[in-house]
Write a protein that binds this DNA or RNA. Sequence first.
RNA 1: GCCCCCAUCGUCUAGUGGCCUAGGACGCCGCCCUUUCAAGGCGGUAACGGGGAUUCGAACUCCCCUGGGGGCACCA
Length: 474
Amino acid sequence: MNASEVRLRFSPAPTGFLHIGSVRTALYNWLHARHTGGTFILRIEDTDVARSTQESIDQIQEVLRWLGLNWDEGPVLQSVRFDVYLEAAHRLLADDKAYECFCTEAEVRARNEDAMRRGHIPGYDGRCRTLSVAEREAFIAEGRARSIRFRTPDEGRSSFEDVVRGEVAVEWSTIPDFVIVRSNGTPVFFLANAVDDIDMGITHVLRGEDLIDSTHRVLALRRALGHDDQPIYAHLPLILGQGGGKLSKRHAAISVEEYRDAGYLPGALCNYLALLGWGPEDGREVLTTDELIAEFELARVIPSAATFDPKKLEWMNGEHIRRLTSAELQAAVLPFARARYGGRLDIPRFEKAVELAQNRATTLVQIADQMAFLFTPDEELELDPASWEKLARVEQAPAILDAVIAYVETCPWEADAIDLKAPIEALGLKAGKVMHVIYTAVEGRAAGLPVYDSIFLLGRASALRRLRAARAKL
RNA sequence: GCCCCCAUCGUCUAGUGGCCUAGGACGCCGCCCUUUCAAGGCGGUAACGGGGAUUCGAACUCCCCUGGGGGCACCA
């Protein structure tokens, strides 16, 4: 790899679905790689074998693909590189930068709780730091399992430069010795992370702010392994839910699949997520992915946490829908329509309906739902109860329907020739006020596609059957 | 309890000492347009958490407080 090459990695743990916050992290890494012509690597941090699942590994890749966040290298699974991490751990052991620890997890926890009661710092107390030969032998004779702990400095400060926060510093005394190899022989995150960032030549580390404290440990390991250079770090602001606290199911959908299934466009989701913590210099908000790549600057990432606002995402999705060509939108809506209408789907009608819906919808699902009446046999058309109630409350509804029926029976049959205003106004009514009656009769509900076009799409016979059915029902 | 990070309208943000009686966007409210509902157009509502300090002058610099968030695992 070239010395000046920019290399970034997105490195999720495959222990569940990919949270929307992680997706934002992936996006920023990807944007910076694409903006700089660098390399974007997908690394799966599955050192916790017990919690990692293949399902999650698959899902991560599926989500990234759907969003268009393609990676140049990987996926690299850490689980196949254990020997590399273990070799590093033994080097640290040999250099006395780490030591074997015979304490069990339960013992450490118990001593911690005790120390906490007395108002002390929680964290490993250093029991095995300086074991005598005899003590060591005794533990081994006992058949105790051993983990490997990294020895952190007792004094001084650890500090690093963060692109979005400036200098981040902490006293070493607040960071206890930590495990780098579990007693079952598997390596821990800090070790694998440090080793891989070295081996992969990572130049920029963009990750959530929740990892900011762990950076001191990773960097200490890196130095202990003989690397005084360090990547450029940028800790991204967290995404919060409404009312504070981390974004969870309670606030909004937090998995990408939910947005995909609800009819959100990947470009809109990327756009919205990109704007949580960053914005282009000129203040534009609706940007294509290519524009995001062109404009993205790490230097403009802000340090404060952002609250996720589903409403703004929805608005933005509508903006993206409006910017699509008819063909693009039709292709995007098609799967949703097929799932709903199956064999009843009529493509020419479908395409026209999508065009009619384009400048009014905020999600693809909304578009697919609005055209339901076009693919439903007249006798099966369901009348939305609330809409019907509203229709029934209109005193002149029978007269309106009669007038419209008479009109539709004889009007010229051309797309732009249908105009229901005249027959309704002939009754002395304001057309706009009662047009919902016709919407409900023809489309089954008061809110939907423009009704003149809908009648034309349906065809004269079908439209008349629906109008007459509604009239008869009154 | 200890440590770290953060702090402009309800929300996303612009703003890097005078251009700020603080700008834009979402939301909300009103009006207009209109083939109901939407969409669109126009207008309105609404913020620099508090206290010190520096300065001729602070949203912008420093300190304290307060508030919010994160971390303190043989999770990552």
